[in-house]
Design a protein around this nucleic acid. Structure first.
Lengths: 333, 333
DNA sequence: GTGAAAGCGCTAACAA
DNA sequence: TTGTTAGCGCTTTCAC
């Protein structure tokens, strides 16, 4: 591939001049400029970004670490980051951590080695101490969906507990008392927090906790299928299921239908996240809106903010209820 | 940030030695190695990948250009590319072209400037000539879902025409004769090819083409909703709808339900792509499997293959029918 | 307005 | 087994 030297040679100028025309820095005579442009065209020259980066010590990429880019949830996150990054002329590097502590660490190292301008990390599995040391050493890391003690101003998170609490409260206010819950097996705070929200809502309504109504499954549609099946197999009756997320809800709904339990006539269901799929399930799923896009954009803004920049960013987002048709109101019967 | 020089200084060795321990190249005395490791630890040193790249003239990243990373279809593609890339120690850079010729070109330039080892491009809008010149100049570009004359061996594509043909044929063999089709408004070959597949199946079965049964909408759930609504509003009766993709099918199903048309009792529906959502619609959607993952992996392999490597890769993939429950067999009635 | 040259962080050939 | 040093492609002073 042609380099700046080739261009300089062909255009009969110095490399400095070539660099000048490409960066519009200081003045260059029209003739020189034209010669350079012509030479570049001829050689099909593309400046090497890597060399540029190394020369002026300042990268043009933003690193994003997600659990799994094929998950629409992270797809939405990636898109939002991409849009915000593009606005600032950065390109985006995506890595997958797959909810494995070791891989998450590898991703962080990778992005650090690349000297990314900013690193937006959805790394929930790596331990607090290790993560804290990364945060300490690299002020350009911003966490998404994880609040790390001492670095709260560089974290953007969803109030999972409150979200789940609101979801279950919605069921309760619709007259439900026997409410099942499908937990997530993922060993991340989100799992526990949402479950705690469920417990909190029960407690507040003085509904006794029933262990048989809680099952633990993967946060996937398959997990939802398994969970619903397990719930149906148990002897405990229930009128509603609150799910860890919309995927589980989708799976659960499919299984309920298969077993001639109509949603919401026989069993009500509420999801979490307001993923795209929730609008197209039958019936359309009532769920909690997870403002992932806003969160991602905020994370990029925080990461790119300069020291003096003291804008007030929101760091904790609360999900809001999206009422659709999967919850039956028991009060009117 | 600490550089190799700082490490060398602190460890009391030369930069060459530091480089050696980090690359496991040639032998280094245990003492020197230990000193270096200790110094690196102390300085929290991470080798600068950019500098490394520039020094040995060979990048460690693979560029992927998709239309929109938030679309699960491209999410699946990105994940597959990531997995294959990781196997070969490459990281993945994702850019969005949003089905806009100009942006696609910008993405290509970006990846070229970064000297990506391989570029997997889903760029359907940029014109043939421009794309051909890129392919000519950069032998590491592989196209996905586009067959460019003269570069067939660096293209991996889906046989859209045949896929749609098989889908509609399935409807026909189930006794359907009045088959509506929701086209995609996207100005990409996929749109035309799938539509041609529909026409071919009709023609083969000697079913007269009925313009009123074809509507053109966005390849999204919303498009499916609009399309189904338009079809219902027209006076022409139909027993089935073939959709450009699963998203449209999801939207169409929702609208049909809303209008008390049961699927498949009153109206049959067939999708395309076998996206995740298709399994969780009610009823579960019959559709055509789009082997996006295999295609993406193949693309990476082709891009990374060396000159001598003359493995025989599949370049054209045919979708296969996934029978579920959205198509009614009219023959038994 | 222009070019020579130093330097960015690292690798690798060469000498020692 | 080590260190010295010349690059890699580009930017950016500093003289002219």
């Amino acid at each position: 591939m042609a380099t700046i030297k080739d261009v300089a040679l062909l255009a009969n100028v110095s490399v400095a001049t070539v660099s000048r025309v490409n960066n519009n820095s200081s003045k260059v005579s029209p003739e020189a400029k034209e010669a350079v442009l012509k030479a570049q065209q001829e050689l099909n020259y593309h400046p090497n970004v890597t060399a540029k980066t190394i020369a002026h010590q300042n990268t043009e990429s933003i690193g994003l670490i997600v659990a799994d880019i094929s998950d629409p949830y992270f797809g939405a996150m990636a898109r939002a980051v991409d849009e915000e990054a593009s606005k600032n002329k950065y390109s985006v590097l995506v890595n997958n951590g797959y909810h494995v502590a070791e891989l998450e660490k590898k991703c962080l190292d990778e992005m650090i080695k690349l000297h990314c301008k900013a690193i937006i990390a959805h790394t929930l599995c790596i331990d607090d101490d290790t993560l804290a040391s990364y945060m300490q050493n690299y002020p350009n890391i911003v966490l998404i969906n994880r609040i790390l003690k001492g670095f709260e101003d560089r974290c953007v998170a969803l109030d999972d507990l409150n979200g789940a609490y609101l979801a279950v409260k919605h069921l309760i206010s619709n007259g439900h008392k026997q409410i099942a819950y499908i937990k997530s097996t993922h060993n991340i705070p989100d799992s526990k927090n949402r479950y705690d929200g469920y417990l909190k809502a029960l407690e507040e309504a003085k509904i006794p906790f029933e262990p048989a109504l809680v099952v633990e499954e993967e946060p996937t549609a398959q997990g939802g299928e398994d969970g619903a099946q397990a719930l149906l197999n148990s002897s405990k009756p229930f009128t509603a299921i609150a799910c860890y997320n919309d995927m589980q809800a989708a799976g659960a709904m499919a299984i309920l239908m298969d077993n001639d339990k109509k949603v919401p006539e026989n069993i009500s269901i509420i999801g979490f996240d307001n993923m795209f799929i929730s609008r197209y399930l039958q019936p359309r799923l009532t769920t909690m809106l997870n403002p992932i896009k806003t969160m991602a954009i905020t994370a990029v803004k925080i990461a790119l903010a300069t020291e003096e920049d003291n804008a007030n960013y929101v760091h904790l987002f609360t999900p809001s209820l999206i009422k659709r048709f999967s919850v039956k109101d028991l009060n009117n019967f």
